[in-house]
Simulated scan of single mutants.
Amino acid sequence: MKTETAVRDGILFVRLTGDLIGSPDTQQLLQSVDQHLGDELRHCTVDLSGIRYINSTGIGVLVSLLTKFRSRGGEMVLINPADHPRKMLALTKLNAIFSIADDEQSAAQQLKVVS
């Protein structure tokens, strides 16, 4: 899995590509986000449009990230989950827990409303 991060307007944007299935990729993702949390960030987007496959470990990482941001008084929005991640979110009923946006602009707008 490949992870790209950028901070714009006080929001951490994370783009993932490949398979979200476990270590060491998930550990690198969590460490990358943790490094940015020191920047006083409270909001995050995670672009899942490039994720082909996600398993229970990957779902657990997304829940962990959501918990990190909500415990800081912030929020996380998933962007355009590909077919398999979308099905897994529905199967686990986590689509009711996560906010989902079609694109970065919509996600940023949702987060600005939360602020």
Rank of each mutant, 00 (worst) to 15 (best):
M1V: 10
M1Y: 02
M1E: 03
T3P: 00
E4Q: 06
T5L: 14
T5Q: 09
R8N: 10
L16Y: 05
L16F: 10
T17R: 13
I21W: 01
S23R: 14
D25H: 12
D25P: 01
L29T: 03
L30N: 00
Q31Y: 03
S32L: 11
V33N: 04
D34S: 15
G38V: 08
E40N: 13
L41I: 14
R42I: 09
H43G: 01
C44D: 00
V46F: 09
D47Y: 02
S49Y: 02
T57G: 01
T57R: 09
S64T: 15
L66W: 11
E75W: 13
E75I: 03
V77T: 11
L78W: 08
I79Q: 01
I79N: 00
P81C: 08
P81K: 07
A82W: 09
A82T: 02
D83E: 15
D83Y: 07
P85I: 07
R86A: 15
A90R: 14
L91W: 03
T92G: 06
T92C: 11
L94G: 01
N95W: 05
A96D: 10
I97E: 04
F98I: 08
I100H: 01
D102W: 00
D102I: 05
D103E: 11
E104Q: 14
E104F: 06
S106C: 05
A108S: 14
A108W: 04
Q110V: 11
K112S: 14
V113Q: 14
